[in-house]
Each structure stands twice: as C-alpha cells, then as structure tokens.
Deep mutational scan, measured.
Amino acid sequence: MDPFLVLLHSVSSSLSSSELTELKFLCLGRVGKRKLERVQSGLDLFSMLLEQNDLEPGHTELLRELLASLRRHDLLRRVDDFEAGA
C-alpha cells in the first residue's frame, strides 16, 4: 500500500470528532460546503484534498498547517517520520 495513504489513514484514525469538525471548518475555503457536509472521517476529507491536489506525498504543507492548528504535535511527528523515510 502507498506509504502516504498509510500515513493519512493513521492520522485520520487518531482524530476525534471535534477535531474533524475543526478540520472541516478550516478547509471551507478549499472544499465546497456541500462536499464537506458529506465528510464522515478524516480520510474522507483527505481524499477530497488529494483529488484537488492539495495533498501529495511531496506536498504536506497543508496537512502540517491543519495538524498544527489542532495542536496535534504527535501527528506532526508522524508526518516528519514519513518525510524522513520517503
């Protein structure tokens, strides 16, 4: 399986429902409101961002910004580990 997708799945499974709600709010300018209403998990949101090329294995800035906004430094370390091994 693609290591970047494994990372996104790992991050998604670590998010609380309130954190997902916050991420959806933060992505309002990037993803349409109707699409965001269908998001049920972090993976749903990340999939939309992947489709729009806002997220890519070599383009993790948005993911970092979102996780920093949540103050999830543990998840930021996972992104660091991914990039160190990528």
Rank of each mutant, 00 (worst) to 15 (best):
Q40I: 07
L49T: 00
Q40V: 11
V39D: 00
Q52F: 06
G58F: 07
G29N: 13
G58A: 10
L28C: 13
S10K: 10
E65T: 09
S12I: 03
L55I: 15
E56P: 05
F82S: 02
L15Q: 02
E83N: 09
V31E: 03
S13D: 14
S12E: 03
K35Y: 06
F25W: 13
R34G: 13
S14Y: 03
K35H: 09
K35F: 01
S13T: 08
D2G: 05
F4H: 02
Q52T: 13
E61R: 10
E83Y: 06
Q40M: 10
V31H: 04
L20V: 14
F82W: 11
P3H: 13
S47A: 10
G29P: 10
D81I: 09
L26T: 06
L20S: 02
K33P: 11
D54N: 08
G85V: 10
D80L: 07
L20M: 06
L8V: 04
L67E: 00
L50W: 13
C27G: 02
N53I: 04
R38M: 12
L70H: 03
R77D: 10
L45Q: 02
H9E: 15
L43W: 15
V39L: 05
L76Q: 05
K35W: 02
G29R: 09
V31D: 03
D2M: 04
T60Q: 03
A86N: 13
L7K: 02
K24Q: 05
L50C: 13
M1Y: 06
E19A: 00
F82M: 04
D44H: 08
L43T: 10
L36Q: 04
R64E: 03
L20I: 08
V11F: 05
L45F: 04
Q52A: 09
R30M: 09
L8P: 00
A86D: 10
L15T: 00
P3R: 11
L67C: 08
R34V: 13
R34D: 15
V6S: 15
L76H: 03
V31C: 14
L62C: 09
Q40K: 15
R71Q: 13
K24T: 04
S47R: 15
L50K: 07
L7I: 03
L7N: 02
L45N: 01
E61N: 11
L75G: 00
V11Y: 04
G42I: 05
L36M: 11
D81R: 07
V31Q: 02
S10P: 01
L28Y: 11
E51V: 07
L50S: 15
G42R: 03
E19S: 01
A84E: 15
D2K: 04
S10G: 12
S10M: 08
V39F: 04
L15A: 02
P57S: 11
K35D: 13
A84Y: 11
F82K: 00
A86H: 11
S17P: 14
L66C: 07
L62F: 12
E65A: 12
G32P: 12
K24H: 04
L36H: 03
A86V: 09
L70R: 02
F46W: 04
S16C: 06
L75Q: 02
L63V: 04
V6N: 15
S18P: 09
D80H: 07
S47F: 11
R72Y: 01
L66Q: 04
L28V: 14
D44M: 06
L55F: 11
S14M: 08
E83I: 08
S14N: 12
A84S: 13
L50M: 13
E51N: 09
L23H: 00
T21E: 14
S13F: 04
A84H: 13
L43R: 06
A84Q: 14
L62D: 04
L67D: 03
S17V: 10
S17I: 13
P3G: 13
L76A: 07
L28W: 09
S16V: 04
F25V: 13
S13Y: 15
D2F: 04
S12Y: 02
L8K: 01
R77A: 11
L20H: 00
V31R: 01
L70G: 00
F82A: 04
G32Y: 05
L67I: 06
M1F: 06
D81C: 08
L26P: 00
M48T: 09
F46R: 01
D74P: 00
R72N: 03
E56L: 13
G85F: 07
R30G: 03
G58H: 10
R71H: 15
Q52G: 10
V79Y: 04
G29A: 11
L8D: 00
S41M: 04
F25T: 15
F46L: 06
E37K: 10
V79D: 00
P57V: 14
E22C: 08
S69Y: 09
D81H: 07
E51K: 10
E65W: 12
L66T: 03
L28Q: 15
L36R: 02
R64A: 04
D80N: 09
P57N: 08
S13W: 04
Q40Y: 11
H73V: 10
L26R: 13
L55W: 06
V6T: 15
S17R: 12
D74K: 00
E19V: 00
D2E: 06
S14F: 03
L45V: 08
G42D: 03
L7Q: 01
C27Q: 03
L55M: 14
S47T: 15
L15N: 00
A86L: 13
G58W: 06
L66V: 05
M48V: 12
L43Q: 10
L45C: 03
V11I: 14
D44V: 05
P57A: 12
K35N: 12
S69E: 11
S47M: 15
D44K: 04
Q40D: 15
Q40C: 13
A68G: 15
G85P: 12
S18R: 13
E51Q: 09
L36V: 09
S14I: 02
S69W: 05
E22H: 12
K35S: 12
E83T: 09
R77F: 05
E19K: 00
S41Q: 07
R72L: 01
L55Y: 06
L66A: 05
D54C: 09
R38W: 06
E37C: 09
Q40T: 14
A84M: 14
E22I: 07
G42E: 00
H9C: 11
L49K: 00
F25I: 12
S10T: 12
M48F: 11
V6M: 14
L55C: 07
L8N: 00
D44C: 07
G85A: 12
E65V: 10
V11T: 04
L49A: 02
N53D: 13
T60K: 03
S41A: 06
R34M: 13
E19C: 03
R34H: 11
G58Q: 14
T60R: 01
A68P: 03
V6H: 15
A84T: 13
H73A: 10
R64C: 06
E56M: 12
E56V: 12
F25D: 15
S16K: 07
R30D: 04
L7A: 03
G85K: 12
S41C: 10
S12G: 08
E83Q: 08
L76V: 11
D44F: 00
L49M: 08
L70A: 04
F82L: 04
H59D: 14
K24S: 04
T21W: 06
E65Y: 12
L5P: 02
H59S: 13
L45T: 00
R72P: 02
V31P: 00
E37M: 10
H59W: 04
Q40W: 07
L67K: 00
V11L: 15
T60D: 03
T60Y: 07
R77Y: 06
L63R: 02
L28E: 15
